[in-house]
Amino acid sequence: MSDIDAAAGRYTTIAGEHRSELEIKRSRFITVLRRTETEEQARALVAELRREFHDARHHCSAFVLGPGREVQRSNDDGEPSGTAGLPMLEALTKRETFGGATDLSDITAVTVRYFGGILLGAGGLVRAYSESVSSAVATARFVRRRRMQLYGIAAGHSAAGRLENDLRAAGVSVLGTDYSASGAQLRVALPDTADALATFHSRLAAMTAGASDPVPLGTKWIDLD
């Protein structure tokens, strides 16, 4: 992830789980990608696939975790050192996403290999595992994530609907509206940047004639699409 992306609080992951398969010189390479946010989830996927493909010779893995890709691990699982896990990890970390960014994270790749009887050699293994993960990522659906600042905005019952429409029309992400006997509270999410927050406060003041003072509710990573 570039310094600009990290400062802006955004990165890319994948939607759910995705699978693909390649055959290279009779060996089958089955790659499973899954969105994961912790090492426990990543290792759980490896364990699941060991059970599912219990008769396979190798279950090689790589994962990248965290908004800033702080955690990166790989495992050759019996293949010659450096010929499986590391190429898989590089296929994840060097993959370009939206706008050419290299910011793919919160993802685990496991490549299951069924040996086909033909030795590939060290170079052949590196290419095979790299291609297997690259092919899987190329057909997975990307999801952009952004760190957002959450705010609550108090409004009367009669004004809540109009205010929500005005905020949406202004490009503000409205997460929902909670109603109670005393009134309503709109929950909104804004990019966690000084410019975005200043613009929001100015627009809200204009929409409500200064009557609504937003209450900070903390920050949260949110899927944009």
Rank of each mutant, 00 (worst) to 15 (best):
C60W: 02
A196D: 14
L89V: 13
V64L: 08
A196N: 04
S135K: 13
G68W: 04
A184N: 04
R146M: 14
I4D: 10
M207W: 01
R203Q: 14
V174I: 07
H59V: 09
N75K: 00
S132C: 08
L167T: 10
G210N: 08
V64I: 10
G123W: 07
A15E: 13
A159R: 08
D225L: 05
M207Q: 13
G218Y: 11
V112H: 06
I107V: 15
A15K: 12
L104I: 04
T199L: 12
D103R: 02
A122C: 04
L150R: 12
E17Y: 00
G218V: 03
L86M: 15
S105F: 09
Q72I: 02
L65M: 09
S74E: 13
A211I: 06
G124K: 04
Q149Y: 01
D5W: 07
R57Q: 12
A194Q: 14
T208Y: 01
T97K: 02
A211D: 12
P216T: 09
D195Y: 00
E131W: 07
L190W: 05
L89D: 03
R10H: 09
L120S: 01
R146P: 09
A128W: 00
L167K: 07
A140Y: 14
R127I: 08
S2P: 01
R35V: 00
L217P: 06
V172K: 11
R35Q: 12
T208H: 02
S130G: 15
R187C: 10
R127D: 13
V112M: 03
D223P: 14
A128P: 05
T36S: 11
T199N: 08
E39Q: 10
E90S: 05
P216F: 11
L150P: 09
A205C: 09
E70W: 01
N165F: 00
R168S: 01
E164A: 03
L175P: 02
D225F: 00
L163P: 12
A122R: 09
A91Y: 15
L204H: 05
H54C: 11
T38Y: 14
D5A: 15
V126C: 07
I4E: 14
A42Y: 05
K94C: 02
L167F: 02
L22W: 06
A136F: 00
A159K: 07
A42F: 05
R34P: 08
A181P: 02
G99M: 09
S74C: 15
R95L: 08
A15C: 09
Q72M: 15
F200V: 12
G176E: 02
A140S: 15
R145Q: 06
L45P: 04
I107C: 08
A140W: 15
Y11N: 01
A169G: 12
G121S: 02
G116S: 10
C60G: 08
N165D: 15
G85L: 03
S74I: 03
R73F: 14
F29N: 02
G156R: 10
F29S: 01
E17R: 15
V133C: 07
D225H: 07
G171L: 11
R162I: 12
T97G: 03
M207V: 04
T199E: 11
D166W: 00
T38M: 10
G78F: 10
S105M: 09
L125D: 08
Y11L: 05
A159I: 07
R43E: 15
